[in-house]
């Protein structure tokens, strides 16, 4: 199966391990992720004021690219891209007059006809392949590994774009179970990581990371999985600052959910794990004998 997918900027830079692991793991499941041609920035955040058409342009332009590719479905990896693209699509569907204005403004482009469905890779795994199929393909069950599923904001909220219940999501837990690992529940799994404050208010982000990660540790979690480059950065790299600010903080490695998937499918993590991880996950993986092929 070939699936059109949208990488977004971070997957080409600081989150290369996300894209690499996703492509390899999906290939192992028989799915080829085909990169959308001529994609541009997703817009990263949704326009939240009623009069802001300008910031709908970037996501809509990407959806036009999908239309040009003759596809009706676009799979995303980064939670921010997922949210922004899907929300823009829903917004123009609810505001046909505004879409007409946008189409008129983008006069160099064909009109967006509103037929594209934006999916997150997790939805593809759950709804199309099915976690049961994923489980069948697992060659190296992650038995004994206690994993904290971290959703953050943008996979779940607002409800209209959420891929699962906003209050009590299950999708990551179900994936973790399918991979043979043990999900660890924490009340912080749907709370914000601090987002873009990481540029100017590092200490706010460190506080968030500390709360989220210590709760994860208290509940017995060993590794946290995420689906967003910014969440991962804030929860992983900002641990440097967390350690400075909070005595006795025990670091927690952070992986993309696709990395966990790749491990369970028996792939060699050396193929994607990079120095971009601040907390090196390798010792933990070693401990669980997940590095040997």
């Amino acid at each position: 199966m070939k699936v059109l997918y949208y990488p977004g900027c971070s997957l080409k830079t600081v989150a290369e391990s996300f894209e690499r692991s996703a492509k390899l793991a999906m290939a192992a499941l028989g799915v080829e992720l085909v990169e959308l041609e001529r994609w541009n920035c997703c817009g990263t955040v949704s326009a939240l004021t009623t009069d802001d058409l300008m910031h709908q342009l970037a996501p809509i332009r990407n959806l036009i690219r999908v239309q040009e590719a003759g596809e009706e479905r676009l799979v995303t990896l980064c939670a921010m891209c997922y949210n922004t693209l899907k929300r823009a699509d829903l917004w123009v569907a609810q505001h046909p007059e505004e879409l007409a204005k946008i189409n008129a403004f983008l006069d160099e482009e064909p009109d967006y006809r509103g037929k594209v469905r934006v999916l997150h890779l997790l939805e593809l795994l759950r709804d199309e392949l099915g976690f049961a199929t994923v489980k069948e393909r697992v060659v190296r069950p992650l038995t004994g590994l206690r994993v904290i599923p971290y959703y953050g904001c943008l996979l779940l909220r607002p409800r209209e774009v959420g891929l699962d219940s906003a209050e009590n999501p299950r999708i990551l837990e179900d994936l973790i179970v399918a991979l043979g690992a043990e999900p660890v529940d924490t009340p912080y799994k749907t709370q914000c990581c601090g987002s873009y404050h990481t540029t100017t208010h590092k200490e706010i982000v460190a506080k968030r990371a500390h709360a989220i990660l210590s709760s994860a540790r208290e509940h017995g979690g060993e590794v946290l999985i995420s689906s967003c480059p910014l969440c991962s950065f804030n929860l992983d790299n900002r641990q440097r600052l967390v350690r400075e600010l909070y005595d006795g903080f025990a670091p927690v490695p952070v992986l993309y959910f696709t990395e966990l998937l790749g491990l369970a499918l028996g792939l060699d993590p050396q193929a994607w794990i990079s120095e971009q991880h601040y907390v090196d996950p390798r010792p933990l993986l070693e401990e669980h004998q997940l590095l040997k092929r």
Partner: peptide
């Protein structure tokens, strides 16, 4: 170091 999305969002 910081993902671009943080700057754009900010």
């Amino acid at each position: 170091e910081i993902p671009q999305i943080a700057f754009i969002a900010g």
